[in-house]
Each structure stands twice: as C-alpha cells, then as structure tokens.
Amino acid sequence: MTSVGLQECLLVGAVLFVAGILCMVTKRNAIGILMGSELVLNGANVNFVAFAYFHDLFNIEGQIFALFTIVMAAAEAAIALAIVLNFYNNHVTVDVDAAEDLKG
C-alpha cells in the first residue's frame, strides 16, 4: 500500500477544479456560478497547500498564496453578490440568460 503523495493531493485539486468549471457552465443561477468559482479557487488552493507540504523549500510560499487566494475569494464574492443584487434589481431574476441587454 503506497502512502499518500503529491499526486493524490493534485487529483483532489483537479476534481475540485473540474467540478467548479462544470458548476459555472451548467448553472443558470448567477449565485450558482459564484459557487462554481469558489470551487475552482479551492481546487487551486489544495494544489498550493499540497506543494507547500511536499517540498520544504516552498512551505511558506504555498501557504501564503493559499491565504491570498482566500482573501481574493472573499473580495470576489462580495463584489459578485453586489453585482447580482443590482442585476436582480434591474431584471427581477438571477437567471444569467436574461443578461442580454448588450446583445447587438
């Protein structure tokens, strides 16, 4: 039985990333798309922390990048929700298919 290594962690990260992409693609609710982007960022974070753990040289870098990503995700969620609320105010729906005002 092999012990858990870097590749297993990267696999988890890849699964999270792909699930996030799928979530962003298939959801029509704007908040669902936001959830997908959180999943994508989490997949990246898992990779960062895994690299940090498995190579001593990058321990600080990996964790600090993960921290910055989390902060960015918080900022992104706040802004995106504000946009969604505005969108709802104007269109009375959160269906992103309704966002076609700029279509030529």
Binding site: C9, V12, N45, V46, V49, A50, Y53, G62, A66
Partner: peptide
C-alpha cells in the same frame, strides 16, 4: 469547503 479545510489540516497547514 469543510473537507478542504480538513485536507489543509492534514497537510500541516493549520493556519490556512
């Protein structure tokens, strides 16, 4: 997200 946090704890990144 909780599971990811658990992975971070397992990978020694307690603070993250």
């Amino acid at each position: 997200l909780a599971g990811t946090a658990g992975l971070f704890f397992l990978l020694g990144a307690d603070f993250v």
